[in-house]
Simulated assay, not measured.
Amino acid sequence: MKREIGISIYPDHSDPKKDQAYLELAASLGYTRLFMSMLEVTEGKEKVKQKFSFIINIAKELGFETILDVSPRIFHELEISYDDLTFFYELGADGIRLDQGFDGNKESLISYNPYQLAIELNMSNDVAYLENIVSYQPNLPYLYGCHNFYPQEGTALEFDFFVKCSERFKKFGLKTAAFVTSQTATMGPWEVSDGLPTLELCRHLPMELQTRILFATNLIDTVIIGNAYASEEELRAMAAVDRYKLTIGVVPTHSWNDLETKIVEDANHYRRGDSNALVVRSTQVRVLYKQEENPAQDNAHAFERGAILIGNDTFGQYKNELQIALTDHEDPRKNQVAYIPKEEQILLDFMKPWTKFQLIKK
């Protein structure tokens, strides 16, 4: 499934002109999903329709798919029914996210709405919710999944729990989404906003790194910025992320020579299929540069997890092979040229046999 990135807008708290400018900038950078929360609306149906349709129509012209976050309270507030989604169709929305679930059959019936609106389900529960819905034969192409975000520090999902929840949805082939948080934005649906990530480990990380982590899991198709407005610098950095290849930032331990630069920045690294617990091995570079001399240097110390290593002239046929240390060890036949910062080392957990990867100089 193709991967995409998205933004969030909160019409009940924002300025329409700023919203439009934000949408236009994001669209120019390749963002294609728009999340909008209706959980906090308190005005009448006509006022809500006017406010939301203005933003949605601009988004539609810019190529965004818009999903509205809704709850039973909103249906009561606006005097509308889950059995008739005309209101959302008239707004111009492409789908609705059910913040709360029903009995399974209800979700299945809603998925066959005549407007072909996507029905997005809450992914942040490790229960047989989706399996129950599927047992009622829903319109699967119109079922999406999307995690929650968590405004309160310390309350977002633990990684292992996130994986379990996400795997339930991916096994049915549903389109999945999760949230990252801007470190500069302050707007969300509620007064408390310590950031709006899905994963707690992401709360204080740069937004582009959060994005790389979520895509690296191979469980998330759409990464959405939970809060507004992210800075232009953040938007550009996130848009530049390779959505399909694992990319890891590395910090040089010294000024690289031409050979080290060519080896480290090679675009075609992949982990050998016969993997081991000591190092990740990328072996094609040793073939490409087997004639190049590489004297021993920066090799007389223990290599810690995350060290970027290149075989030196004393390493025989392994000369100029690139390795990433997974386990601390010593070996003077290898030169250390860089290291992976601690906050990026979680990405090593996604380095499976044959994984394609690229190292980015920080």
Score class of each variant (00 low, 15 high):
154 G>V: 11
362 K>G: 12
192 V>W: 04
189 P>W: 01
180 V>F: 06
50 Q>C: 09
190 W>N: 11
127 V>P: 00
117 L>Q: 11
232 E>Y: 13
32 T>L: 06
148 N>F: 00
72 P>F: 08
185 A>M: 07
92 G>E: 03
332 P>I: 12
170 K>A: 09
23 L>F: 01
80 I>Q: 03
182 S>E: 01
52 F>K: 05
98 L>V: 05
67 I>A: 06
25 L>Q: 12
112 Y>L: 04
282 S>M: 10
19 D>C: 15
127 V>W: 08
3 R>F: 02
249 G>R: 12
333 R>P: 00
300 A>K: 13
349 D>R: 15
2 K>Y: 07
301 H>R: 14
122 N>A: 09
249 G>W: 03
35 F>E: 04
182 S>W: 07
188 G>A: 10
214 L>M: 14
302 A>P: 03
125 N>F: 10
313 D>K: 14
13 H>T: 05
217 T>A: 13
31 Y>H: 09
324 I>W: 10
103 D>T: 11
13 H>K: 15
38 M>R: 08
221 D>T: 02
209 L>F: 07
122 N>S: 06
322 L>M: 11
142 Y>Q: 08
30 G>I: 00
167 E>A: 15
324 I>L: 12
253 T>Y: 00
254 H>Y: 12
225 I>V: 14
72 P>M: 06
129 Y>W: 11
153 E>W: 09
356 K>A: 13
32 T>I: 04
261 T>S: 09
127 V>R: 08
311 G>Y: 00
143 L>H: 01
11 P>C: 00
299 N>F: 11
290 K>S: 12
112 Y>A: 05
191 E>G: 04
288 L>C: 01
281 R>Y: 05
75 F>V: 05
111 S>K: 07
68 L>H: 06
180 V>W: 06
261 T>P: 00
297 Q>E: 14
254 H>L: 05
100 Q>D: 12
124 S>D: 03
248 I>R: 08
274 D>T: 15
121 L>N: 03
115 Y>T: 02
68 L>S: 04
172 F>Q: 10
201 L>E: 13
226 G>I: 04
148 N>C: 00
212 R>E: 09
6 G>S: 05
316 G>M: 07
82 Y>Q: 09
315 F>A: 12
191 E>H: 11
262 K>T: 01
358 Q>D: 06
158 E>S: 13
290 K>Q: 15
64 F>Y: 10
174 L>G: 07
352 K>E: 14
307 A>D: 13
303 F>M: 09
41 V>Q: 09
201 L>C: 14
83 D>S: 14
159 F>V: 07
